[in-house]
């Protein structure tokens, strides 16, 4: 790993100021993604700003929703009583990610900011427009089994690897951000970007901006399920995943949120399927019809055509498991 300067920020303001002073500086929280990328030579910041002492570790909930500080560990968020009872989809998604050890280290802010696990991005001898703009996309014509089927571009077909983010997209969360210009909020579904012509940009966070928290508005969902399909039962990234939350009353679907992971450069909301489901009976036949349309509009590559069949099956299973 190339060495760097290390500073520990004592306040949000000093962290932001320090990041503005050096355009090759990065915040570090749990380090589980950044240290990995630095060891591989994928990124080499000149300065690391340790943000772990900042007061962003609280979870607050009220009638309006829940706010989870950016430095709350993934394990702490998953074990929080309010999260478990009122936002179980988030707890399920968090627990489906990484390992117990990594969840103790990983923070909510870092999880949102984690980079793709595309093997071409990870191998510095390979072309990759995300790592090294202009070098081409190794995956497009390469071994693209893990790659996107929605929203990709000819510049990049990588997927966003997070489980937590799929749940946050389904739960209509917002990201709270601080900068020298003040505070702002971004809707979670607008936070991550599609690759387009600038795959080097994963999201819309600007230089000098710090994620302080995520907020999930209160909801009336009474059924939820996070289904993750991977190469082994645990401790592996998703091939596809499905986050579903439903409000079912007297057998009728009053409201539903459906998002997929492992299929796009960002968590992918299935808005057409949601529209189809609202007002219908929560029955197997309806779920089958919904699943049949789930992958409409997908584009596959040589090695990931299986994601169409798997995606449909996963949507059906997630809906079915949510309502039992």
């Amino acid at each position: 790993m190339i060495n760097f300067e290390y500073t520990k920020a004592s306040s949000t303001k000093t962290a932001i100021d320090a990041s503005l002073k050096n355009n090759n500086a990065k915040f570090i929280a749990g380090g589980t993604n950044l240290v990995d990328l630095m060891k591989k030579g994928i990124t080499a910041p000149q300065r690391l700003i340790d943000i772990t002492a900042l007061p962003l570790k609280n979870i607050n909930s009220d009638a309006k929703g829940i706010t989870i500080g950016a430095l709350v560990a993934n394990s702490a968020a998953a074990e929080n009583e309010t999260v478990k009872t009122k936002y179980p989809l988030l707890a399920m998604a968090l627990n489906a990610g990484a390992s117990a050890q990594l969840r103790n280290m990983a923070t909510v802010g870092g999880n949102i900011m984690q980079r793709t696990r595309c093997s071409y991005f990870y191998d510095i001898t390979m072309p990759c427009n995300k790592r090294n703009p202009g070098t081409g996309c190794g995956a497009a014509e390469g071994y693209n089994r893990m790659h996107a089927v929605f929203g990709a571009s000819d510049k990049c077909i990588a997927v966003h690897p997070s489980d937590m983010c799929v749940a946050l997209a389904a739960l209509n969360a917002t990201v709270n951000i601080s900068s020298s210009k003040g505070d702002k909020k971004i809707l979670f579904t607008d936070f991550h970007r599609l690759p387009g012509d600038t795959p080097e940009l994963d999201n819309n966070l600007q230089a000098g901006e710090l994620i302080t928290a995520i907020h999930i508005p209160a909801n009336n969902f009474n059924k939820a399920y996070y289904l993750k399909i991977r190469d082994r039962l645990s401790y592996a990234f998703a091939l596809v995943s499905v986050a579903v939350a439903l409000e079912v009353k007297n057998g009728i679907i009053k409201d539903v949120s459906l998002a997929m992971g492992g299929v796009a450069h960002k968590p992918w909301r299935l808005t057409a399927v949601e529209k189809f489901l609202i007002g219908k009976t929560a029955s197997q036949q309806v779920f089958k019809d919904a699943a049949a349309m789930a992958m409409d509009g997908a584009t596959t590559y040589e090695h990931n055509t299986y994601k169409i069949k798997l995606g449909k099956a996963a949507v059906l299973e997630a809906l079915t498991k949510a309502v039992v």
Binding site: T32, D36, L48, S75, A98, S99, Q101, L102, N104, M105
Partner: peptide
């Protein structure tokens, strides 16, 4: 961070020491 061999406890919690500065 992929194998767990390096697991230690920090303030009583298990972590992967290979990814911790």
């Amino acid at each position: 961070g992929q194998c767990g061999c390096c697991t230690v406890h920090v303030d009583g919690q298990r972590i992967n020491s290979c990814l911790s500065l």
